[in-house]
Design a protein around this nucleic acid. Structure first.
Length: 428
DNA sequence: TCTGGGGTCCTAGGACCC
DNA sequence: TCTGGGGTCCTAGGACCC
């Protein structure tokens, strides 16, 4: 036991406002103040909205075709997702945030928790404003900051900062009174970790607000909902249950899947798509120095096409020994595909999931393994290096095909301003 | 033309073991 | 009246996140 009473932890949650939209604006300042949306892969539905678009009542996830007329009427600028751009700006954002805290957890593409424990409490808001200003100047991105003793409360503070458009974009919830006031104003569904199903169930129990949830009985909630909700209750009371995780643990599964730009009927095209997805997944697998012990292939028709007969097939394949060799993974995935393929359906999506991931560094040597693992590893490393340096797809497997007539639609993608020499922004 | 993609954690229940 | 009890591993399904 320490003899000095430890001060409560202080976390700052930094979250970019309308991140994808803000990335587009960072390189097209004319869009500032204009209504802007970004669409999902395949230009299917809305995944990011500027404030102007939110004011029009466009919902997150709205299908693009349902709001076409509205978008036209209000001259909304529409973009396909540009993950090369968003990923690169995200890395730069995290880099800048790292200058403002000794410990950082990168939580998502546009969010990070910063450890500000031990910082002078009366200077926190000023410090947050300085950080917000730096991000704005260096990257052109608007961010908001929520400061509190736990992650769940930091999320609440951040939400208030965003909604109230507080100057400097920072709100602190460090004392009991401020916390109670904020929680009384919040529905449970707006808490981090509580969504529709659970909030409806809570409401049926007479728990409508976050404050009521905070003051409810933890053992009862645990029996009714499980440990996840119980933890949220303690977090709301200022007792940390969710630790800051600086180093992301390796993924336990890796998924690569996509819907097609048009319906696909032929097995040949599905083979190309599956090989393409395996290749993408395998690159991520090797990047985290893992090997897969199994994989799952899935194909399916469009659930939103009422006239198409529905079919969904999936197949799990176990590998004799774990591998990160794309050739082996493609071979097994195609075996799985052939087992589930049924002719005559209009397929809409194909995907691959790598399973039973283990560390490549402490693999068990298999007694009867075909091929030479060291050779395989050298080949994969060489391919990854070339593709990293020369661009994705420079070296690829024939099975992936070349035409990719099934590839997703991205009719309105902005340039890869920061990651492709040929698409650098021009200053005329 | 026509509704994304990539993840995590927890729990319950069955199989199996001693 | 009374049919063992405790542990582990795996899987499927449900809930959530951005």
């Amino acid at each position: 036991m320490s003899s000095t009473p430890s001060r409560p932890p202080v976390l700052a949650l930094v979250d970019a406002n309308n991140f994808y939209v803000s990335c587009e604006r960072a390189f097209a300042p004319r869009l500032e103040g204009q209504p802007v949306i970004v669409l999902s892969n395949n230009d299917g539905c809305v995944v990011a909205r500027s404030e102007e678009v939110k004011a029009l009542g466009v919902a997150m996830g709205a299908p693009a075709r349902d709001i076409r007329e509205l978008l036209r009427r209000h001259r909304v600028r529409v973009f396909s997702s540009n993950y090369a751009l968003y990923g690169d700006l995200s890395a730069r954002l995290m880099d800048v945030l790292g200058r403002f805290a000794p410990r950082v957890e990168v939580y998502s593409i546009d969010e990070a928790f910063l450890d500000w424990s031990g910082f002078p409490e009366d200077g926190l808001i000023e410090y947050a404003r300085e950080m917000v200003g730096t991000v704005r100047r260096w990257l052109g991105l608007p961010v908001s900051v929520g400061i509190a003793p736990t992650k769940v409360l930091a999320k609440v503070a951040n939400r208030i900062a965003k909604r109230r458009k507080v100057p400097g974009g920072a709100v602190a919830l460090l004392d009991a009174d401020g916390q109670a006031e904020a929680l009384a104003d919040l529905r449970t569904a707006d808490l981090w970790g509580i969504a529709g199903r659970w909030s409806a169930k809570l409401e049926a129990l007479g728990i409508d607000t976050a404050l009521q949830l905070r003051d409810a009985d933890p053992p009862f909630l645990r029996s009714a909902f499980g440990v996840v909700v119980e933890r949220i209750v303690y977090e709301l009371r200022g007792i940390p249950c969710l630790a800051l995780e600086e180093v992301a643990p390796p993924k336990r599964q890796i998924v690569a899947s996509r819907s097609f730009g048009r319906p696909v009927v032929e097995l040949g095209e599905l083979r190309e798509a599956v090989a393409f997805h395996v290749t993408r997944a395998a690159v991520r697998l090797r990047r985290q120095r893992s090997e897969a012990g199994g994989l799952q292939v899935s194909i399916g028709t469009n659930p939103f096409a009422p006239d198409d007969p529905p079919y969904h097939g999936h197949c799990t394949v176990e590998l004799v020994s774990p591998t990160a060799d794309t050739r082996v993974l493609i071979g097994q995935a195609l075996r799985g595909l052939e087992a589930i393929y049924r002719g005559g359906y209009r397929y809409h999506k194909a995907g691959v999931m790598l399973l039973s991931l283990t560390s490549a560094d402490r693999r068990q040597g298999a007694l009867f393994q075909p091929g030479d693992p060291a050779r395989s590893q050298r080949l994969m490393t060489a391919i990854d290096r070339i593709n990293h340096r020369m661009g994705r797809g420079t070296v690829r497997f024939g099975t992936e095909g070349f035409g990719h007539g099934w590839a997703m639609r991205q009719a309105r993608k902005s340039p890869a301003y920061t990651t492709r020499w040929s698409e650098l922004p021009r200053v005329d």
